[in-house]
Structures are given as C-alpha cells and as structure tokens.
Write a protein that binds this DNA or RNA. Structure first.
Lengths: 108, 108
DNA sequence: AGGTTAGATAACCAAGTGGTTAGGTACGAG
DNA sequence: CTCGTACCTAACCACTTGGTTATCTAACCT
C-alpha cells in the first residue's frame, strides 16, 4: 500500500482521528489515549499500530510506558493533494473556470 | 458512518483517486472511466457507488449511459481538516511554537 | 520474591472490502 | 423484433478490519 493510501485509510476511523487530535496537546501514554473511549486496550493498541505504520505517530519508551507523539508530516501530503481540487470546490468557480477556458480558446 | 470518515475511506483506494483525477477533465461514462484499469465492470461500479455515497461524484443518465461528474465539496472539508495540523508539519515550526508558548508563560 | 501496572501478542469473530462470474435491464440501431 | 452496447445486481470468494478475551512480558514498588 502506498503512503497516501495508508494515510487516508488511517484517517478513515473517527477513533484514530480523535487520538491524533489528543496528541496535538502533547505526547501521551497508551493508557491516557485510551481513557476517552470505552473500548479495550488491545483495540487501542491496534489503532496505534495503524497510525504508526502510516507514519502519523512515533513511539518511545520510558520505563513501562510507551509514549506516543504526533508526526503530522503525512498530513501535509494530504493537504497538498486536496488543494489540487480547490478549483472544483464550488460550482461558481467551476463555471468561471469554464468561461476562462472558453475565452482562451477564442483568442487562439 | 459520518461524512468525513466516508470521504477518507473513499480516498483510501488508489483506483478511486485515479477516477477522481480523471473527472477533473470533465464528465465521463462508466466505460470511459474503466478503460485505464484492467478490472471488471462491476468492480468499477462498486468504486463509483462508494464515491457517490461519499458525495464525491454525482450521476446522471443519458440514454444507456450513466455519466459521472466530480463534486469536490467533501474535499474542502478534508483540506480544512488537514490545515488544522499545519503547525505540526515540521519539527522546526513545532520547536518555534514551543518556544513561543514558553515565552508566554514566563510573561505571566 | 510477590504484586501491580502498562502494554503487546495471539486467537477468535462478525462485518466490510475488492475482486470475480453470471445473469438481468434499458436503450439505440438495423 | 432482434441484436449489440452500457450498465447494474446478485452471489460468491479471499482478505482485511475493528472489536473481543485470555495470556504474556517488562518494569516498578514493597
């Protein structure tokens, strides 16, 4: 699976997006991250592994804790990808764009 | 499934992203969309249904054709979501941000 | 050494995904 | 009316996903 697909797949789950949101406030342990959700520890571990494989978090180790930290670089790729569609975001802009194309063609 | 999750899930597949890219050049029929890929028609139909449910395409009907058109509005939501992480995209900015926070705290 | 806490791994399950083939519907052309 | 084309639905398959419980390791604290 390519990088962009892995990132999108990781972001498709609300729990994982919530984890990322939490990590914007600073590093956290697995326990801390699991607290807002009423799912089991192993379920959180799986989510974290998905995020790690997508390169969205990095993990250290301090004694018995395995602190998670946000790494948002893959999100830049997402933002850039989405920006390429900006011209299509609203119909009026599309219509304007069509008009401009038409004008260019007439010029030639 | 919420809107944002559906959008991310739809974007997680490279075939579907390629279909969206093709649709930036204008509407296309299912047949036209399927040509670049060597997968069966039904497989393409399924991809299109996913894109339609995510609100990324709209479909009309002209005789025996069912033309697809891009609707990029959900991508705006994606771009906005990703933009919220801009401050975390590179470490230097994060360090700068930490420094500013520290300075603010000292001021108080 | 023994107990507690943090966390990972393994085995399992239901549901979803991406693909297939086979067969059905709707429309235009001869 | 019949034939070909465009497309969809249905049924099936292998694989993945998001969850569970049970069991393990590692580190800390008495």
């Amino acid at each position: 699976m390519d990088q962009l697909s892995a990132t999108f797949a990781a972001l498709a789950d609300p729990t994982r997006r919530a984890i990322l949101a939490r990590l914007t406030e600073g590093p956290a342990t697995v326990k801390e991250l699991s607290e807002p959700f009423d799912i089991s520890g192993p379920a959180i571990s799986k989510h974290l592994r998905v995020l790690e494989k997508a390169g969205l978090i990095t993990r250290g180790r301090e004694a018995q804790w395995r602190p998670c930290q946000l790494d948002a670089t893959p999100l830049q790729e997402v933002a850039v990808w989405a920006e390429n569609y900006r011209r299509f975001w609203d119909a009026s802009y599309t219509r304007l764009d069509a008009l401009l194309t038409e004008m260019k063609e007439k010029e030639q």
